[in-house]
Write a protein that binds this DNA or RNA. Structure first.
Lengths: 169, 169
DNA sequence: ATTAGTGCAAAACGTTTGCAACATT
DNA sequence: AATGTTGCAAACGTTTTGCACTAAT
């Protein structure tokens, strides 16, 4: 059923099959699934669907949103499975978890490495700014150096109004 | 009972009564309580105790930790009251809430304005780095400008090992 | 055939809420 | 005296867990 992921097609063909997806993302999907399998995990349809969602969407979905999307494909998928899969991906460093008090947890499967986020406090949208992550990394290490901290990860969130919501006010 | 907060003593006297507290913090306590009262809120013993905890400690306590500390003074204080008080202080901008997925919410009543935090992933300690907040603010506005975002607040968390835990490894 | 993963329901967890009794103003 | 606050318990939303069944390997 999902055999196509195990024997990847040429990039050109692969990319034509997934709308709005660039070569990089499609490649990452294949690679990620390979890594999952090599780590001894089974590629169930539900699991693959969840991974695909995480790689295809760029809106930092919540668990609830992921579950809803998966249900369209596999109507019996449980919330618990979504949670378990996300947990697995977190452990493997394949998704970045963004926990917000009120907004709940959101996930970024496209760029699992730390990078800044813009959170609109009106519409709740979360976007990745077109910013060189290096600057943030640099600031992080500078601060860490001064305090003798060994920084392994960081998080930079900017709260405010997105351009759309600004215009709407 | 708590009348002394309403008619503040001279700074020199005030500071002698609170160990390990600098003039600034003691002043802020008085001012904060005044502001609370002027906003039409009542200064109950529990409430004052919670505010004091938030200003005296520098360890970014959790709700649970605050509750435990308050219980020593007022054994019947409920968790709900702590939550309600924190909620009130948040609304008034007197405390900064730091929500962490696994660590739960932590609170900073000393520096309610956004500033970076160093979170030790081993011992769970949260400290304020000796860093000029301006740098973070500057980076935040630079990123915001590029993306048309109107930033009203931000958050910069660094995860890693604190000096003590580094030495212990 | 093994054994990891699923799905369900129950439990756990932090937080919020409704309300009668209470204490500050 | 008026009314904001407390404390209890119940409700809440999110995440986790136990376990029998199912399905990928």
């Amino acid at each position: 059923m999902l055999r196509l992921f195990f024997a990847p097609l040429p990039a050109a063909v692969r990319c034509r099959t997934l709308k709005n997806m660039n070569t990089c993302a499609a490649t990452r999907l294949d690679e990620l699934l390979q890594r999952l399998r090599k780590a001894g995990h089974r590629l169930t349809p539900q699991r693959v669907a969840i991974v695909r969602q995480l790689l295809e969407r760029d809106d930092h979905p919540s668990v609830e949103q992921l579950h809803t999307a998966i249900l369209a494909e596999f109507p019996t998928t449980s919330l618990a499975t979504v949670y378990k899969t996300i947990h697995l991906l977190k452990q493997l460093g394949e998704v970045l978890e963004l926990g917000f008090g009120e907004l709940g947890s959101r996930y970024d499967g496209r760029h699992p490495r730390p990078h800044p986020h813009l959170i609109c406090t009106r519409c709740g949208s979360i976007t990745d700014p077109p910013c060189p992550d290096d600057e943030v990394d640099a600031l992080a290490s500078r601060i860490a150096k001064q305090s003798g901290f060994a920084v392994s990860s960081h998080r930079f969130d900017l709260f405010g109004l997105c351009p759309a919501c600004r215009a709407r006010s």
